[in-house]
C-alpha cells in the first residue's frame, strides 16, 4: 500500500459509510428528472426538440457529479476544522501526493454517485444508444469529476472556514451548472448566453457525455475531450500549488 492509495481509500470508505448522504443527494436529480423531464417534455417535443428526458438525463448525471466533486474538494475545510488535515500534513509524504490521493478519491466518489444517477435514469425510461460507448461515457464522467474535485480543492485551500461556502455555491457552482447546456440545447441561444456557455467547462463535459450516451453532441467528441483534459490538467496544477501553500 502506498500513500496515494490510502488517501484514496479513506475517501471511498467515508463515502460508503455515509448512507444518508448518498440517499439524500439522490433527491435533487430525481426532482429534476420528474419536474423538468416530465414537466417540460411535452412542450419540448411540440417545439420539435424530440425526447426531452433523453436530452436531460446526461445533464442531470453531470449535475450530481459536479456537486459531489466540488463538495469532496471542499471537505478539506472540514478536515482543517476537525484537525485531521494536520495529521496528513505532518506525515513524511509530499503535499503533491496528498493532493493527488485526495483528488482521486473525491473524483472516484463523484463518479460512483454519477453511476447511481445513471441507473436511476433507467427507471425513468432513459436508454443508452450504444453499449460500446459506455466506456467513453465513463471517461467523461471521470473527467468532470476530476476537474471539479480539483476546483474544490483549490477553493478549499484558500478558504479559512465554511463561511465562504454559500458564496461559492451560489456564485460559482450554480452558474456553472445552469449555464452549461445541461438543461437546454446550445443552438439558437442569445449571443451573451452562448458566449458564457462556451467558457463554462461543464458545457464540454456534458456535451461529451451526451455524445457518448445518446449519440448527439454540439461539438465533436474530440473537442470535448481536448477541452476537458486541458482544463482538468490546469486545475490539478493550480489546486496542487494552492494545497502546498496551506498553513495550519
Amino acid at each position: 500500500m502506498n500513500a496515494i492509495y490510502i488517501l484514496w481509500l479513506r475517501q471511498i470508505k467515508r463515502y460508503l459509510r455515509s448512507r444518508a448522504r448518498i440517499v439524500g443527494s439522490l433527491g435533487q436529480p430525481i426532482l429534476f428528472l420528474v419536474a423538468l423531464g416530465f414537466g417540460f417534455g411535452p412542450v419540448y417535443a411540440k417545439a420539435g426538440g424530440g425526447n426531452y428526458l433523453e436530452f436531460l438525463a446526461p445533464g442531470v448525471i453531470a449535475m450530481s457529479i459536479l456537486f459531489t466533486a466540488v463538495f469532496s474538494g471542499i471537505e478539506i475545510i472540514w478536515d482543517r476544522q476537525f484537525g485531521f488535515l494536520k495529521e496528513t500534513l505532518v506525515a513524511p509524504v509530499s503535499r503533491l501526493k496528498i493532493m493527488f490521493g485526495r483528488t482521486l478519491g473525491g473524483a472516484t466518489v463523484a463518479v460512483l454517485q454519477g453511476v447511481i444517477v445513471l441507473c436511476l435514469t433507467f427507471i425513468f425510461g432513459f436508454r443508452i444508444y450504444s453499449l460500446a460507448m459506455l466506456p467513453m461515457a465513463l471517461l467523461f464522467m471521470f473527467l468532470i469529476a476530476l476537474l471539479f474535485t480539483a476546483l474544490g480543492t483549490a477553493i478549499a485551500s484558500v478558504l479559512e472556514d465554511m463561511q465562504g461556502f454559500q458564496l461559492i455555491m451560489n456564485f460559482l457552482v450554480m452558474p456553472i451548472f445552469f449555464l452549461s447546456g445541461a438543461l437546454f440545447p446550445l443552438t439558437n441561444l442569445p449571443k451573451a448566453i452562448a458566449t458564457v456557455t462556451k467558457i463554462d467547462p461543464l458545457t464540454y463535459g456534458i456535451d461529451g457525455l451526451r455524445g457518448a450516451l445518446i449519440g448527439v453532441s454540439h461539438f465533436s467528441l474530440h473537442t470535448d475531450l481536448l477541452v476537458m483534459s486541458a482544463i482538468t490538467f490546469i486545475l490539478i496544477i493550480v489546486g496542487a500549488y494552492l494545497f502546498t501553500k496551506i498553513e495550519v
Binding site: 467515508r14 459509510r17 513524511p92
Partner: peptide, 17 residues
C-alpha cells in the same frame, strides 16, 4: 517528520474511521 510522533493540542483523528 519521520523522526517524531505528535499529539496535537486539538483532536486530529478521522471520526468516520
Amino acid at each position: 517528520r519521520q523522526s517524531f510522533g505528535i499529539v496535537f493540542q486539538d483532536p486530529s483523528l478521522d471520526d468516520e474511521l
